[in-house]
């Protein structure tokens, strides 16, 4: 039915989705906070840049990452000397790809969360003498919790289903870059439809469970916070 290779692929996918979400939250929170308050002339342009991975097909994104990080040019060279591996065919490579690919899904909810929150709480706290760092950690973050949870949920779910990008830069290495969607694709290509069906069923059941837990967590928070 489901081979050990497939379980390995499932674990790898979950690991990739969790790490991607974690990295995006760390990057996303401060930059969304900054962007929500920024009113300069480049605001629309920056927002467009952030939304760009929504427009580009993942395979196209993957292809240009492959070009950009080619060991024949400086970017690929720098990457290789920093990480000791090529961007393609490595877990860190698909992790970087996923961070770019899922960026809008995490940043958009955070950005709109901060925008809706407005400046009033922050200004009130500042008026009472609360330093900026404390305002961010003790006031804004707790208020932002629902947005953070939906950002994390979207980023996680989106990365779980990632396919095109990993297909382009992954190289299909079991335990390193062979995520669930790739394993599934391989089964279909090899006409092992039965294995493909089992694996798809696992993916769907797991996703529904994970998302249910997350949404439930989100709702109970909202009720509890009133």
């Amino acid at each position: 039915m489901i081979s050990s290779l497939d379980w390995q692929a499932l674990w790898l996918t979950v690991k990739l989705a969790l790490l991607t979400t974690a990295i995006l939250l760390v990057i996303g929170l401060p930059s969304a906070w900054w962007l929500a308050r920024y009113q300069g002339r480049f605001k629309a342009f920056i927002e467009a840049l952030i939304a760009l991975p929504l427009v580009l097909p993942p395979t196209v994104l993957g292809f240009y990452l492959l070009m950009a990080f080619s060991p024949n040019n400086w970017l690929g060279n720098t990457w290789q000397s920093l990480t000791g591996q090529s961007l393609a065919f490595s877990f860190s490579g698909i992790l970087l790809g996923s961070v770019i690919y899922s960026l809008p899904f995490v940043l958009q909810p955070l950005h709109s969360g901060f925008s809706q929150l407005g400046l009033k709480y922050s200004q009130a706290a500042a008026g009472l003498g609360m330093p900026a760092r404390q305002r961010f950690f003790h006031l804004l973050l707790p208020l932002m919790k629902p947005s953070i949870i939906s950002a994390a949920t979207l980023g996680f779910a989106h990365t779980l289903g990632e396919f095109g990008l990993v297909l382009m830069i992954g190289g299909n290495l079991p335990g390193e870059t062979q995520v669930l969607s790739i394993a599934l694709y391989n089964h279909v290509e090899a006409l092992d439809y039965q294995q493909a069906h089992s694996l798809a069923a696992v993916l769907i059941v797991f996703s529904v469970l994970a998302l249910t837990v997350l949404y439930r967590f989100n709702r109970s928070f909202r009720l509890g916070s009133v």
Binding site: L66, P71, N72, L87, A88, L167, G171, N172, L173, E189
Partner: peptide
Amino acid sequence: LVKAANVNQAFQFVDTGHA
């Protein structure tokens, strides 16, 4: 060995210098 999804991709891997 790096296993590409098809021959075109195997070509790309070499052409971009990753393999």
